[in-house]
Each structure stands twice: as structure tokens, then as C-alpha cells.
Design a binder for these strands. Structure first.
Length: 918
RNA sequence: GCGAAAGUGGCGGAAUGGUAGACGCGCUGGCCUUAGGAGCCAGUGGGGCAACCCGUGUGGGUUCGACUCCCACCUUUCGCACCA
């Protein structure tokens, strides 16, 4: 189904008048979303409603949604993300908080370069055209954003502070340069961080990643590993799974590092190969890391990674080994599923010595040993490690049991492998350590190794330092200069920023900066001689690692941040996608700490509360073209078909009438042609309907399934709400009392109301209490909306129409409008005025439910017999237990189930339920 | 393999140990109407004429009472994955 054609122009009160009654009311009968939204947005803009100021004494609320990449158009994920933030910002503002909700642009990055390659337009031009377009789209959603703080990471006024902070970190050794094996993306022709490699492929291109040796800059995030891990415990406002993901990523393990001394044959090999330099890196033996030092006497081989220097040395005179190593290296990147790859290896023919027994231990090269983790070498204990067991079995290596189960589950390791073999136990056949429990043995063996000077306890991290150099054009230049005489020299602070020339057009081959002489050629700040400017730029994750701090002082020219940062930070609520659970959030936590250590901020944790919203899904339809390719058909153009189990099986294209296949439910994407354009949605239904639907269709943390009919349902609800207010206001106008803003007058006595009126008041105030909890505490916006819809249904059933009844209805409508206003702010802005208020609803305080309205004189109790519902009784509120039991037993249905049986027990939950156990 | 989350009508979902299916979509019947993809009213988990019975992935358990808590299993999704 297509979006409905533009609706007919709204009928004016004059053309639709049915009598003098309507005439006297200026309110339009028909809900015209476009006009309503224009008026509300104009008001907010003219009043500067969302411009935030530091106000001493007022409780502040910093509400932040992850800033968008200016790709050109908003997508539905943005709408969901920013609506969640906006609802909270508006709600907290009405609660009396001093709210800051800023917005900016994560503007550097590869898509701009790709667009440049495709269109021959500089990335800067493309980006700077996209930003105002998307800003207009964001404004059309009616977000309560302080646009005076807007920033774009591609502006020199922003990225100069990247450069400045980089230089400060370099002075402190937090940033350092080294040559290392890096992940090279052959498609984007750039280095990727570890975090950006997923299943051996580039996170963006999906291209198979190669290993290359490149000099680049790293940030010493590992120096903060301990702190980053420990502080996760305190982040109670973060989802558990994000904390777990980060903890796993940081990956702390305690163990022992030890050196197996070279045997004579290894020494001879290294001498003969003349690779003393390589050998030097290895000292006098092979260093390994183990968490199971207690199994040291079970070592029957040592396995090296293919990239290990000793493996390289051994391969020098061994063609078969060289071939195997080559294959491993290729295999490790070619096979996506390395975990299930068969364990393979080859003996080097040389040996190390067991540190305690002096026995020779063969050295193997194995494909399951990672150079990147630990020392790139492991001790092989087939009896107590599943991988080593598999490896030893395959190559006929001995299995030596050195730990037995404390519970007697096994005495000797034998086929097949069992999980118990890897558990802690009691040591056997382990020299003087025999008889110790594993835990004690690890301590004792570590101590013995330390005495011998060949080992010690240490902590191993999975986390590695963050390589930030990128051989890309559209990024923040790294502020360094290479001088023949002086070496690498920092650009002096007074020469910052190093401005990126914005007119270059990348052609897809390398970095155009490197070929741009006016940028590259410069003077050495130290000696004044001719020098070359660094052309690497920073990983764009640097840009996004501190933008949330800059919002506190976006206009500052003398420093990245000032004291205002201490007022606004930490972010009280951060909202974004789960896909940033590791990269962005970990880098931001690190960068904030680095800034703290540079004396720039006082805080360590930037985000007190984190909310991860779910994905926006839609159905995917496709058909196979004659050439075998898949053609995806937009679900809006498909009439779906279902099988007997109501499962989608396919459909018919509304465009050509031909059948299409059903693929699956999936995230909205261009490639699957299943996206819905937010702009079209806003144009056809209005921002309020769009906001309402994305908040209503699913709890915000879960994935949301798109539904055109669901959108229409929310539009219908807004129209019914509009109509209810219209009819109420019209009735008041004809009765001469107009809208009675505020509902009941002080003179009216709520206890004198009719039963129906009391019920409506009760429903209204209960709704208010529910919405307050649902938005403020539970963050279940879907149930908040449902509660308001229920209230509107209740208002619709209320028939009375005298002056008191109109006052009660007025109050109920006001509560409905107030409660809905954070979610559908425009229509509520207009309806609030129509209900007779001069103040804009955004400047109203969130009301407290009236306890008198919440209390009821009579309540319905549920009566259960043996836990099953058998009846209901009406009783005065607060009725005593005995009274409730008597009433319950008097119920005819209940009597049928109780008759002739002995009452064993009776449960009474006051004002709720009676359960009779017979 | 490890970790996390989730399994409820035709669909999205609600139920904060106490009436399972709120709210919305869809569907059925009726009304209204310048026939519009509008509005209004009624109905809508299954079975049964009814009284009632059955029903929240499966099997156990705790409880007066379990969608909810505990144990085991199945399925799905997501994350991590040869981490020594």
C-alpha cells in the first residue's frame, strides 16, 4: 500500500457549520496536522523554548541521543531514536528540570568520500549540503532541541580540539607511534581497528581484511583497561548486556607468564639462520601465557602462531614449514569461520626445555594460536585443554594427566574428551607440587618460576591499544610534521587547527591529501627548514568520543571545554542503538578519562544512564530475475499472501501484478528495498502521528515491526482526540460557559458528583498516575499511549452534559492532553489553547494526580475459589476481611463451588481479591 | 561452544506474584453518508445449547494463587567466539 494521497484541504468552520453553535467557536472541526505543527514549531522557535542555560540551583537533565551521520536523509531508526529522547526531554522539562537536548553531526567519514568518488563532488560539499536538509527534517519532527549548540565534527572549530588533545596525549604518552601488523581493508584502502573487523571482514565494506605492516598512531586504551572494566560495575544505569559485552571485550584474565628455555637445537637454528634480531625479541626462550600454570607438568608440546618470530626463523630452512605457515596466514583471513576450522599444525623439529624437569619439549606451529593474544605461543597440555587434546590426538602427541578430579569423576584422561578434564582438581605427577589443589598450585608454581627468574603472575587483556591513523582524506588531520633534520615534530598549538583543504575530490585510489602539495609542503616548526605534513587523518570514532562534552561549551575558542561541562555532565540519559555497545561507548569512556587525566574535566563516566532502542523492521520481498540476481520489491507495493498458519508466504506486486516471494522480516535498508521514508510519513500524516506510531508499536527496547495500518490507527486516534476536544469546546460555547480551563472550580464539591462523574475523574487521575510512571520510571511509552487511548474511550462513554459534567470532562481532557504532550507535542500544544489556556503546554508543570479522585468509595473484589475466578463483589473501599469474606461467600456462583466443602483457608487482599481454599 | 534476551489471540503487543489477552491493527455484523482508505454502534482466544471446560513454547517445582519466581529442555534472535 502506498501512502494515502494528500488528504482534502481541511474544511473550515464556516463550510462545515451546522448552526450558531459552531459559529461561535473558532476551533476548526477538522484536525489539520500540517497547520497545527507549523503553529507549534513557530511558537517554540519564537519563544526559544528549548534554549538551555546553566541555572544554579535547578536540577539539570542532560538528555542526549547519538548524533547522526549526515548521509542525506533521515531514516526510521533516527525517528525512533530521537523521539525517545524527545519524549524524555519534554517530560523532564515539565517535571521542572533544566533540560539540555542538543544535536550535532558526525560529519567525517567514508560515505562522503564514496559519494565524492561517485559524483565527482568534494566530500565537504556533499556533507554541507546534507546537513541543512537533515536539519530541516529533524525540525519537522518537532524535537525539543537547543539548536544554538549545534556542532559538526568536520568544522575546524570542532576538530582543532581533536588535534589539540591528541598532542596533549602524545606529550603524556597516551598517544604513541609504532609499526604494527594492522588490519587493512583492501576496498576502502585503510587500516581498521580490531573492533572494526567482524568475522575477518571490514565492518563497513565486508571485504576480507589483509594483514599489513604500517607505522601508525595508537591511543593507550590498555592503560585504562583495569579502570574501564572495574567501573562497569558501577554503571547501574546501563543495560546489563552492554556491560557484559564491554567486559568481554576488555577480557581480563589472570595467569602466569613463563619462558621455556631454548634447547640446543633451537639455539643452533637461530644462530645458523642469523636471525639474532628476531631471537633477541624472544630472549632465551619461548614465552607463553597460561591461566593454568597448575598443569605445567602436563606440557607435551609448545605451539607457536604462524606469525611468531621463531616460527618464521624455523621456516627459513624448512620449505614444508614455510609453505604451511603461508597457508595458515592465508587461511586465517580466508576462512570466515575460524572457530570451527580444523586444528592443524606442523613440528618445527626443534625444542625448548621444560622449566622444572629440563625435559625437551617439541615446538610446533599451530593454526589455532593467535599472534594477537598473549605471547603468540601457548604451552600444550593435551590432558587438560580441549584444543590441545584435539591437536595431540591428531598428531600423536602424548597426553599426560597431571590433575585429577577432586570429586573422583576421573583418574586418568582418556578418549573421548570430557568437560571435567579442564576443571580444577588435585595435582598428580607434578614433582613437588603433587597433592596441591589447582588454586594453590598456581600460586606455588608462579612463586617458583619467579624465584628462577623465568616467570611471574600477570594479568592478560584481550583489549588492545586503539590505532587511530587512517589513510583517508575526509577526516581530522593528525597535527604532525615530518622533518629530515628534526624527525617528527608536533604542530605548535598556535598553528592549530591544521585545516583540512575542503575542495579535494578523492578518486578511489589512496588519499588525495598526500598528493596535494599546498597541504603537504610546509616548514618545520623546529628548524624552519622544508618539511612534509602528515597526511593521515584520525579515525572518526575520535570525533564522536567527546562531542557530548563540547555541547556544554560549543562557542568556546580557547579550550575544548570549560567549567560549564561540570554543570551539564554527566549525560543523564543517553539514547542510541545497541550496535554502538562496544566501539563508540568504550572509546567515549576512555576518552573522557584521558581528558580527566589532562585536567580538562572532573568526571570519569560520561553517560550515567544508557538506553538502547530496538531496530525498526519491515518485511522483505524479492523475486529472482532471469539472470539469477535478486530484485527486492518494496513491501508498500506488495499485497501479501498467507498460508493456513497465517504465515506470510509471498504476495503480488501492486505495480505489475506479478508474484513476489516473501524473504523475511529485516531491518529497514536501502539494499533490501524495505525502507519507509520518514519525510513522506510526516508529509502525509504529520510528525505527531509518526512519533505516536513509533512509540506505540513496541516497547522502545524491542524491535519494532512496521505497519502502515498501525500508522493509520494512530492518526485516527489523534483525530478522535481532536474531535473530542472540539465537541467539548463547542458544547461549552453554546452553553455560554466556554472552556472552563482547569476543570472543576474551587466551589464545586467533588464528593457531590454523580457516580459517573466520579468514575471519569477516577479514570483520568489514574491515567495520569500511570503515564507518569510509564514515561518517568518504566520507559514503556507504548503503555503510556494505550492508557491515554483508554481514557479517551472512557471520556467518550461519559454522557452527562450539565455545567458540572462539562467541568469534569474538561479536567479529563486536560489530563489526556497533558499526558500525551511529550509524545505528540504539536496537537497537544493546540488543544491546550483550545481548552482555554493562555500558557503554552510546554511551559506547564506536569500535574500530580488528585488523591481524592484516585480513591474510590466502592471497589470490586475478585472472588476466587482454589485460585480460580468464580465471582466479583462490590464493597465499600477499605472493607474489613470479615466483611469481604461474608460478601464473597454470599455470591451465588461462589456458593455453588463452596457448598458441601470445608473452608480450609481464606486469603484476603484488601480492595482486590478474596481466595477461598476448600 | 560461551553469554544475553525473548517465546502470550489472525497480527503488533498488555498484564509491576492476584480478573490472561489492556491498547491498537485486522476481521464480522449493523448504522450513517455528497461511496471516503471517513465516522458511529456491537462483536471478535478455542470448545460447548448451557452450566462450564481448556488456554501464555515443553516438562517439573515453589505458592492459597504463576505469563510472571526456581530447575531442566526445545525454539528463535542478538552478541562473542581456537583468548591459552
Amino acid at each position: 500500500m502506498r501512502w494515502p494521497a494528500v488528504r482534502p484541504a481541511p474544511l473550515t468552520a464556516v463550510t462545515r457549520r451546522r448552526g450558531p453553535l459552531v459559529y461561535s467557536c473558532r476551533m476548526q472541526e477538522r484536525y489539520d496536522a500540517a497547520a497545527v505543527e507549523r503553529a507549534a514549531q513557530d511558537h517554540w522557535e519564537q519563544q526559544g523554548s528549548f534554549t538551555a542555560h546553566e541555572r544554579a540551583g535547578a536540577p539539570k537533565y542532560y538528555c542526549l541521543s547519538m548524533f547522526p551521520y549526515p548521509s542525506g536523509r533521515l531514516h526510521m531508526g533516527h525517528v525512533r531514536n530521537y523521539t525517545i529522547g524527545d519524549v524524555l526531554a519534554r517530560f523532564m522539562r515539565m517535571q521542572g528540570y533544566n533540560v539540555l537536548q542538543p544535536m550535532g553531526w558526525d560529519a567525517f567519514g567514508l560515505p562522503a568520500e564514496n559519494a565524492a568518488i561517485a559524483n565527482g563532488v568534494p566530500p565537504a560539499v556533499w556533507t554541507r549540503e546534507n546537513i541543512p536538509y537533515m536539519r530541516r527534517q529533524l525540525r519537522s519532527l518537532g524535537l525539543a532541541i537547543d539548536w544554538t549548540r549545534e556542532l559538526a565534527t568536520c568544522d575546524p572549530s570542532y576538530y582543532r580540539w581533536n588535534q589539540w588533545m591528541f598532542l596533549r596525549m602524545r606529550e603524556r604518552g597516551i598517544a604513541y607511534k609504532r609499526t604494527g601488523v594492522v588490519n587493512w581493508d583492501p576496498v576502502d584502502r585503510t587500516v581498521l581497528a580490531n573492533e572494526q573487523v567482524i568475522d575477518g571482514r571490514g565492518w563497513r565494506t565486508g571485504a576480507l581484511v589483509e594483514k599489513r605492516d604500517i607505522p601508525m598512531y595508537y591511543l593507550r586504551i590498555t592503560a585504562y583497561a583495569e579502570e574501564l572494566l572495574a567501573a562497569l560495575q558501577e554503571l547501574s544505569g546501563w543495560p546489563e548486556r552492554v556491560r557484559v559485552m564491554q567486559a568481554n571485550w576488555i577480557g581480563r584474565s589472570e595467569g602466569v607468564e613463563l619462558t621455556f628455555p631454548y634447547a640446543q637445537d633451537t639455539r643452533a637454528l637461530l644462530d645458523a639462520a642469523g636471525t639474532a634480531a628476531d631471537a633477541g625479541a624472544q630472549g632465551e626462550g619461548v614465552k607463553v601465557f597460561t591461566t593454568r600454570a597448575d598443569t605445567l607438568f602436563g606440557v607435551t608440546f609448545v605451539a607457536l602462531s604462524a606469525e611468531h618470530p621463531l616460527a618464521q626463523a624455523a621456516a627459513a630452512g624448512n620449505l614444508a614449514l614455510a609453505a604451511f605457515i603461508d597457508e595458515c596466514r592465508r587461511g586465517s583471513t580466508m576462512e570466515a569461520d575460524v572457530a570451527t576450522a580444523e586444528k592443524r599444525g606442523m613440528a618445527t623439529g626443534v625444542h625448548v626445555l621444560h622449566p622444572f624437569t629440563g625435559e625437551p619439549v617439541p615446538i610446533w606451529v599451530a593454526n589455532y594460536v593467535l599472534m594477537a593474544y598473549g605471547e603468540g605461543a601457548v604451552m600444550g597440555v593435551p590432558a587438560h585443554d580441549e584444543r590441545d587434546f584435539e591437536f595431540a590426538r591428531k598428531y600423536g602427541l602424548p597426553v599426560r594427566t597431571v590433575v585429577t578430579s577432586a570429586s573422583g569423576a576421573y583418574e586418568r584422561v582418556c578418549e573421548p574428551w570430557q568437560g571435567e578434564y579442564a576443571e580444577h582438581g588435585i595435582l598428580v605427577d607434578s614433582g613437588k607440587f603433587t597433592g596441591l589443589a589447582s588454586g594453590a598450585a598456581i600460586e606455588a608454581i608462579a612463586a617458583a618460576l619467579t624465584r628462577l627468574g623465568i616467570g611471574s603472575k600477570r594479568v592478560q587483556w584481550r583489549l588492545r591499544d586503539w590505532g587511530i591513523s587512517r589513510q583517508r582524506y575526509w577526516g581530522c588531520p593528525i597535527p604532525l610534521i615530518h622533518c629530515e633534520r628534526c624527525g617528527e615534530v608536533a604542530v605548535p598549538d598556535e598553528q592549530l587547527p591544521v585545516v583540512l583543504p575542503e575542495h579535494l575530490v578523492p578518486d578511489g585510489s589512496g588519499n588525495p591529501l598526500a598528493r596535494h602539495a599546498p597541504f603537504v609542503e610546509c616548514r618545520c616548526p623546529s628548524c624552519g627548514g622544508a618539511a612534509r605534513r602528515e597526511t593521515d587523518t584520525m579515525d572518526t570514532f575520535v570525533d564522536s568520543s567527546w562531542y557530548f562534552l563540547r555541547y556544554a561549551s560549543p562557542d568556546l575558542h580557547s579550550a575544548p571545554v570549560d567549567a560549564r561541562v561540570n554543570y551539564w555532565l554527566p549525560v543523564d540519559q543517553y539514547i542510541g542503538g545497541i550496535e554502538h555497545a562496544i566501539l563508540h561507548l568504550l572509546y567515549s569512556r576512555f576518552w573522557t578519562r584521558a581528558m580527566r587525566d589532562l585536567g580538562l574535566v572532573q568526571l570519569s563516566e560520561p553517560f550515567a544512564n544508557l538506553f538502547t532502542q530496538g531496530m525498526v523492521l519491515n518485511h522483505i520481498y524479492c523475486r529472482k530475475l532471469p539472470d539469477g540476481r535478486r530484485q527486492y520489491v518494496n513491501p508498500a507495493d506488495v499485497e501479501p499472501q498467507y498460508d493456513a498458519q497465517h504465515a506470510r508466504i509471498g504476495g503480488v506486486s501492486l505495480i505489475d501484478g506479478q508474484p513476489v516471494e516473501y524473504h523475511s522480516l529485516g531491518t529497514m535498508s536501502k539494499s533490501k528495498n524495505n525502507g519507509v521514508d520518514p519525510q513522506a510519513l510526516v508529509e502525509q500524516y504529520g510528525a505527531d502521528t509518526a512519533r505516536l506510531f513509533v512509540m506505540f508499536a513496541a516497547p522502545p527496547e524491542q524491535s519494532l515491526e512496521w505497519s502502515d495500518d498501525g500508522v493509520n490507527g494512530q492518526f485516527k486516534f489523534l483525530r478522535r482526540l481532536w474531535r473530542a476536544v472540539y465537541e467539548h469546546v463547542s458544547a461549552g460555547a453554546s452553553a455560554g460557559d466556554g472552556a472552563v480551563a482547569g476543570g472543576l472550580t474551587p466551589a464545586s464539591d467533588p464528593t457531590a458528583l454523580s457516580a459517573a462523574a466520579r468514575e471519569l475523574r477516577h479514570a483520568a487521575h489514574q491515567t495520569l498516575a500511570k503515564v507518569t510512571g510509564d514515561i518517568g520510571r518504566r520507559r514503556t511509552f507504548n503503555t503510556a499511549i494505550a492508557a491515554v487511548q483508554e481514557l479517551l474511550n472512557t471520556i467518550g462513554r461519559y454522557q452527562e452534559n450539565d455545567a458540572t459534567a462539562r467541568a469534569v470532562r474538561q479536567e479529563a481532557l486536560e489530563i489526556a492532553v497533558l499526558a500525551l504532550s511529550p509524545i505528540a507535542p504539536h496537537i497537544c500544544h493546540t488543544l491546550w489553547h483550545e481548552l482555554g489556556h493562555a500558557t503554552a503546554i510546554i511551559d506547564e508543570r506536569w500535574p500530580q494526580p488528585d488523591p481524592q479522585a484516585l480513591s474510590q468509595s466502592e471497589v470490586e473484589l475478585v472472588v476466587q475459589v482454589n485460585g480460580k475466578l468464580r465471582g466479583r463483589v462490590r464493597l465499600p473501599a477499605g472493607a474489613e476481611r470479615q466483611l469481604a469474606l461474608d460478601a464473597a461467600l454470599a455470591d451465588p456462583t461462589v456458593q455453588r463451588f463452596v457448598a458441601g466443602k470445608t473452608l480450609r483457608k481464606a486469603i484476603h487482599v484488601p480492595d482486590k481479591l478474596v481466595n477461598l481454599v476448600v
